[in-house]
Every structure is written in C-alpha cells, then in structure tokens.
C-alpha cells in the first residue's frame, strides 16, 4: 500500500472514536464532568492555546521527555551491548535488572527525591529509569542474536573486538534497537506525567492533574490528545531516522531481489 493509502487507513479508528464520542455525549447519559462533548473540548483547546499556557507546558514536558529519553537510550544501548557481547556480564547484571524492572515507579519516588531533590534532575531520572528497560532488553536481544557465521567472517578478516562490535554486532542489532527505542519513547511520555506529580508546577502532566482535581475534564482530554499526537510525531521521527540508517531492511520489505542467477 502506498504512503497516502497508509495515512487514510490509519485514520479509520480515530474517526470511528470521534463518531462514537459524539453519539455518547449527545444521546448517552455520561455526565459532562467526566466525559465532556467535542465542542467543550474544542473550546478548552482554543482557550488553552490562546492563553499560551498549553504551549509552555508542552515545551517544558517535551524538554523533560527528550532529556530522559536520550539518557535512557545511552544507558540502555550501552548496557545492552555490553551484556549482549559478554555472557558473563549478562548473567551478572540481568537478574538484578529484571528484579528492579518489576518495582513500580511510585516506590522509587521518595528515594529519588532524597538523592536528586525535587528539581528537573529528579524528573529526568524518573523518565530514564522507566524508559531504559525496553531499550536495554531489545539491544541485548539484537546483539546476542547475531549469527555466529557473521562473527566468524569478522574473525577471518582479523577484526579486533571493537571493530567486530561496530561492523557486525551493532548493524545486526539496529532494527531491534529501534523497536526498543520506540517502546522507550512511549514509556517516557507516561513517565513524564508521573514525574510531574512530584513538586511540579509546570508541564502538561501537572496541568492534566490540576485539571482533574478541579473537575475540568475538558482540559484533561485536551492534554491527553496533545500528548497522544506529540507521541505519534516523535515515534514517526524515530522511524524516519532509522529508515535512513537501515536501508537494507527497507529493501527486504519491498521484496527487491535479483532476477537472474
């Protein structure tokens, strides 16, 4: 399916949701304080944009997400690569990582506050902790699944350990790392909202929470939609960057192959 066709297909569900929403709020018995109708949401959106607050909050949260996500990408890819290359390191680190992963974010917060205070640093740390796991796990998987045959080719041509890593293991793992990064990005957005529960007075997560306590559900929905849209855009951005980096995968998908033998 061509690109334009893809966009149209992707819009089917959102349009369906909007229609259902309209029906539910016009003919249903949903209280407006929990599910406002489209017009109220539209109005709230216009108000928030006009007041400039939405843009400011968005930029602040976006900044936190980007910082936390980049930090988690660096840590996740680094650790994941180390563990993928060394069975011993993997055995040493992976059980602890898996255990930590199960601990809900809420439990970390008091400790993080003690270590990192209540400023920007602690928020970025929270995002980093949340997002690092999918990136690490996927990097580890991509690296360790590298076929022995390719590694043997590297040995044949006397590549040293670093060269083998950059020319064989890493390119092999790139598609999988991409999967991890996309997952990590989604988690980053969830984490930024959680992080803005701690001593924040700005940011879209904070705004969403504040709106909720004041029963301004139209504002809540505006925030949700905005987060969703920005999330999609960032996800697409990562895809585009990675498509540039992995041209051979695209060709596989489009099924280009030689005709002669």
């Amino acid at each position: 399916m061509n690109k334009v066709g893809k966009v149209w297909t992707g819009l089917i569900l959102p349009v369906a949701i909007i229609i259902l929403w309209y029906l539910a709020t016009t003919f249903g018995t949903m209280p407006a304080s929990i599910l406002p109708d489209l017009r109220m949401v539209g109005r709230a959106f216009a108000e928030m944009i006009a007041a400039g607050q939405l843009q400011k909050d968005l930029l602040i949260s976006l900044g936190r997400v980007i910082k936390g996500f980049l930090a988690s990408a660096v840590v996740g890819i680094f650790l994941g690569s180390l563990m993928g290359m060394s069975q011993k390191l993997k055995e040493m680190i992976l059980p602890t990582v898996t255990a930590i992963r199960q601990i809900p974010m809420v439990a970390w917060i008091p400790l993080i506050i003690l270590w990192a205070g209540i400023g920007e640093k602690s928020k970025v740390i929270i995002i980093m902790i949340a997002a690092v796991f999918p990136i690490l796990v996927n990097t580890l998987s991509g690296i360790s699944s590298t076929q022995e045959g390719y590694v043997e080719v590297a040995r044949l041509y006397k590549l040293n350990r670093w060269e083998t890593f950059t020319k064989v293991y890493l390119p092999h793992a790139l598609p999988q790392i991409l999967v991890g990064l996309k997952l990590g990005l989604g988690v980053s957005w969830m984490a930024v909202v959680a992080s803005e529960l701690i001593a924040a007075s700005t940011g879209i997560g904070y705004r969403m929470n504040e709106a909720r306590s004041l029963m301004k559900s139209d504002k809540v929905i505006v925030c949700m939609i905005v987060i969703g849209l920005i999330g999609i855009m960032m996800d697409k951005l990562i895809s585009i960057v990675f498509d540039r980096l992995t041209p051979w995968i695209q060709l596989q998908k489009t099924g280009g192959s030689g005709s002669q033998s």
Partner: peptide, 8 residues
C-alpha cells in the same frame, strides 16, 4: 507542590 512526598 510535593505534599505526597513531603517526608522525603
């Protein structure tokens, strides 16, 4: 704004 984590 940190009532829930005031102790810490």
């Amino acid at each position: 704004n940190a009532l829930t984590d005031a102790q810490a």
